[in-house]
Design a protein around this nucleic acid. Sequence first.
DNA 1: AATGAATGAGATTTCATTCAT
DNA 2: AATGAATGAAATCTCATTCAT
Lengths: 206, 206, 206, 206
Amino acid sequence: MSRTVGSYGPKTMEAIRKACLRLIFEHGFEAMSLRQLAAEVGIREGSLYNHINTKQELLFELIKEHMEEVLQQLEAALAGIEGSVERLKAFVAFHVNYHMVRKKEVFVANFELRSLDATNYSEIVAMRQAYEKQLADILEEGVTDGVFIVGDIRVATFAVLAMLTGVCTWYRSNGRLGRDDIIKTHTRLVLHGLRTGDGTRGRRSL
Amino acid sequence: MSRTVGSYGPKTMEAIRKACLRLIFEHGFEAMSLRQLAAEVGIREGSLYNHINTKQELLFELIKEHMEEVLQQLEAALAGIEGSVERLKAFVAFHVNYHMVRKKEVFVANFELRSLDATNYSEIVAMRQAYEKQLADILEEGVTDGVFIVGDIRVATFAVLAMLTGVCTWYRSNGRLGRDDIIKTHTRLVLHGLRTGDGTRGRRSL
Amino acid sequence: MSRTVGSYGPKTMEAIRKACLRLIFEHGFEAMSLRQLAAEVGIREGSLYNHINTKQELLFELIKEHMEEVLQQLEAALAGIEGSVERLKAFVAFHVNYHMVRKKEVFVANFELRSLDATNYSEIVAMRQAYEKQLADILEEGVTDGVFIVGDIRVATFAVLAMLTGVCTWYRSNGRLGRDDIIKTHTRLVLHGLRTGDGTRGRRSL
Amino acid sequence: MSRTVGSYGPKTMEAIRKACLRLIFEHGFEAMSLRQLAAEVGIREGSLYNHINTKQELLFELIKEHMEEVLQQLEAALAGIEGSVERLKAFVAFHVNYHMVRKKEVFVANFELRSLDATNYSEIVAMRQAYEKQLADILEEGVTDGVFIVGDIRVATFAVLAMLTGVCTWYRSNGRLGRDDIIKTHTRLVLHGLRTGDGTRGRRSL
DNA sequence: AATGAATGAGATTTCATTCAT
DNA sequence: AATGAATGAAATCTCATTCAT
């Protein structure tokens, strides 16, 4: 199904991905027309089809590739880190940073799932759940160890994810604060929000 | 020839609002066609225009009325409550509850702003900012009083709001947990996330 | 078919006719919507149908009544006048004057015939031909008498009518010239245009 | 599936113009639907938009191109001709001939101005005025030279133009008279209508 | 007489997609 | 790989008209 792009000329495809991402980020997938997309890339509508199969598939691939990458990068970010607190810190730092650096991809992958058709939707949702599970597992470990207190683990997982993901809706790279500042604020909120009164004391580092 | 009995009268507008909300919630504003909407209501597409002016205006009014109501209800929920901690508790409880009870309205008002035209967008954004300011003011008061520690007040405001709003994306009224459970989990996360180590001690109530 | 307006309340019907005439004059029959018309009159679209049967019939009656009146007034204007020159003068004066005083009716009756359905069109065209025949007869009499020279009587009839009718497209009641000035200019053009070199001499009066 | 063979290619635009002209001539611009137009051309409605931008723009371009051509051809027709009488003769012959040969274009350009939007209307009206001025200048020269007597130059200009333009409303190429006959009748009407008694005598040529 | 709400047809325009060149 | 021109479906919106109230 998906075209094998030859060795010569992958530049157009890259331009399409980039423009598509920007247009969806700005107007939404439904509101983005292939006319606009082609114009942005500097080719005609018909020519798009030398590079893509359908609009739906383009969206799907964009989201899927993002999910693959984010999953892989998360794995790398957590690799070798032990202990629920340390793993949580790593998770937060990674997630928030990624949601600033790749905010368009993240935004699309979060808010355009509705536009995926049934099959594609299922596939992406499974990947999302794998991602969420990483956080859920950290929380669970922490609760088991008595380091975290949360009312309900699933709810807490959703809540923390929602908080951390929110950054992609307002972050501007030329804004008032640096990425590190933003990561810090979120880390404090999450860690304090979850930790028990005791476990926190001695090693507060934020 | 004869019109569908029962759909006549002033009930139609209410049916339109309700169906519209549901369709936007499920498919998104751009993806919802007036054909679908009319079918849902049980009238012809053209008949919609006895009740609305344009699709855009319908969206705008739906969102605007929601914003007016949520602002007014928030005011009521905070009325007479003193002290940043108590005000924050009230804010969280109100916000989370409202985002479960009116999740469709809230979802639309949060995720369909993109579909508003420039003028309408500005008007709604102003109302959103008024809402956000209520939380920002609480945080600021708490920081000034030394009860809260937050890295950056604006970031913390966004983060808390994103967390609390997230509930409208997954809450099901027939789900595993009751609304009170969900409110409790969020309240704990927020209050612990923001409070200083000291101020918290004596009167922890969660 | 045509409603018998009762003895009470013919005011609305008069308002409809007047507004309709103005709207057709300004935008054309096809471009005028009954919405606009109703709004102009100050009632709702549906209420129009207490006064008219169809949009088509409204146009037809407007034109028909105009044709009846113009035919009758022309007859009056020519009554008792003898001789082709004198009759021609009377014709020109009447036609030009009428096309200034009633320019909207005239304009509609001239340029909206296309919008009449087949039956109505035939009826109006017959009346128009009766009107044209009056001028054609005058020309013919003048040619027979040797007072007029025209290449072809039918062509000359059309040409003179087109010239005289044109006034309804540019005349403004508050314009630079009075109606008499405009009539004079047209009379001279027509009479000189048609007359023989000889017949003209002695009694030139313009 | 496969498109109508033969309608492919750059001939389509020409077919659109031609069919559009005919349909407007017969039914009026407002009454002509793009459905009809597409059917006439042998393509689907949507396919029209590979060639036009909007219905309005199609009308505008049709009229504008006509105006450009008629202005240019008039210039050519008057080039090198001296003296108000000779120039007037040339004007009449050109105008009447053009209004028979290109009667559809002329009709549309004269009677569909109403359907142009404000900007387009202004542009075309300016071109019309340039055309009218050519006649007005001839009349003025003739009056100055004492060859023409007219009550009022502006009125006479309108009157003569209305007369000559009228031909496009009734001329049929297979009618009773040839184009030369029709031109002759109009030339006589105009020249006699305008000329002084004296200037005419010696060299009457009609 | 007037209204509000309905109808069914139809308007212009946009869309994703196809395909011969 | 790109283009221009086609398709067929669908979008929003308008229209004249009807009719219970």
